[in-house]
Nucleic acid binder design. Structure first.
Lengths: 184, 184
DNA sequence: CTTATGACTGAAATTGAAAATTGGTCAGTT
DNA sequence: AACTGACCAATTTTCAATTTCAGTCATAAG
C-alpha cells in the first residue's frame, strides 16, 4: 500500500499519480486508501517522511566526530548527492519542480533541503565549540556551504561542458572554506 | 526612437512591448522603425548593449589597481547591485524570467551575468599574477564568488525574514574568501 | 457489526477551435 | 527618398465544452 504509492510517486511524480492508479497497484479499491490516509497530500507526506528518515540515517552513519570537520562534511555531502541521484522519487520531484512548479513537489524539495541545512548547521556549531573552525554564524555558514556545493556539483555544468571532477570540487571547496584565498 | 523603445521595454518587459507601442511613443509609423532595426530582437539588443556599456563604465570607474583586490571586488559588486536595483529594465527583465521564462529576457540576463563574470575573472587572474591571492582557476573562482554574493544578497532573504546587513554580507564574504574557516 | 468498494460528484484541469494580437512587409503617400 | 499604416501569416489568447480526479458515500462482502 505505502509501497504502491511510493512506486507511483517515483514513477510519475506528485501531480501525475492518481489515487486510482495507486489503488490499482496496491490491489485495493480507491475508498480503502482513504481509511488509512486522509488526503493524497498526507499519503505523499508519509512517503516523503520515509525518504527523509533514510537521509538522516545516512548522515548519522557517515558522521564520525573523531574525524576532522571537513572530512565529515565531504563524506556526508557526497553520500547525500549520491542518494539523491539514485532515488527515483527525488529525481522525479526535482524534474517536476523545474517543469511544472507543482507546489507540493516544491515544498517537498525544500523540506529535503531543510534537513540537510539542519544537519550542516548542527555540525558547524559543534565544530565551532570544538574550536576546530572559527567563530561564525552557523546558519549563514551552513547556507553558504550548501550553495557552494550545489554551485560546484550541478550549476557549473549547466554553463560549462567539462564537468568538474570530484577532486576539483573538493579542492575548490577546501580553498574557499578552509584556507581562504589570501596568500599566507 | 531608441529612447522610446528603452522606455517601453523597461515598463512592460520584452514580451509585452509591441512594435506598435514603441512606434506610438516615438511618434513615428511602425514601418519607420524597420528602416533602422531589422527585428524587434535587434532593437532590444541595441538597448541591452547600452545598459551593458553603462555597467562596464561603472566597473572601470570603481576598479583601482592600487587598492587591494577585495576592496575593488566589494565596491564593484555593491555598485552593480545598486545599478541593477535602480534600472527598471533589469528589474523588469528578471521578473519576466521568473514569471514567464521568456527566452529573450533569459538570454539578456545571462549576458549581463556574463559581463560581470568576465570582469571578475579578469580581476582574479590579475590578482593571482600580482601574488595578492593564491594560485587558482580564475573562472571557477569568479563563478563561486558571484554565486556566494547572490546567495548572501538575495537568496538568503527568500527563506529568512531578517535580511543581512551590508556589513554582515561583507564579513561573511571575507570570512570565506579571504581568510577561510580553519583556525589559525 | 466492521471493512472494503467503486459509482458518483463538484471542482479543477485540459482541449481545441475561434478570435485577437502582433512582428514584419510593402504599395502607396508625402 | 523617407515615411506610413493597411495588410498578412503566424503566433497567442480566450473560453466553452469536455475530461480528469480527489474525495464521498450508499451498498456489498465478510
Amino acid at each position: 500500500m505505502l509501497g504502491a504509492a511510493a512506486q507511483s510517486f517515483s514513477l510519475f511524480g506528485y501531480k501525475a499519480t492518481t489515487m486510482e492508479q495507486v489503488a490499482k497497484i496496491a490491489n485495493v479499491g480507491k475508498g480503502t486508501i482513504y481509511t488509512f490516509f486522509d488526503t493524497k497530500e498526507q499519503l505523499f507526506d508519509e512517503i516523503l517522511h520515509g525518504v527523509i528518515s533514510e537521509m538522516k540515517t545516512i548522515i548519522e552513519r557517515e558522521v564520525d566526530h573523531r574525524k576532522p570537520f571537513f572530512d565529515n562534511l565531504f563524506r556526508v555531502l557526497d553520500s547525500l548527492l549520491e542518494f539523491r541521484g539514485e532515488h527515483e522519487l527525488l529525481i522525479k520531484l526535482s524534474q517536476e519542480v523545474r517543469d511544472f512548479g507543482t507546489p507540493q513537489s516544491q515544498e517537498a524539495m525544500s523540506r529535503v533541503e531543510g534537513v540537510i541545512l539542519g544537519y550542516m548547521e548542527k555540525e558547524v556549531r559543534f565544530a565551532v565549540e570544538q574550536h576546530e573552525i572559527r567563530e561564525c554564524d552557523p546558519s549563514v555558514v551552513a547556507f553558504l556551504m550548501l550553495k557552494m556545493y550545489v554551485a560546484l556539483t550541478s550549476e557549473w555544468n549547466k554553463q560549462h561542458q567539462e564537468t568538474l571532477t570530484k577532486a576539483e570540487i573538493r579542492q575548490h571547496f577546501r580553498l574557499f572554506l578552509e584556507e581562504g584565498l589570501s596568500v599566507k
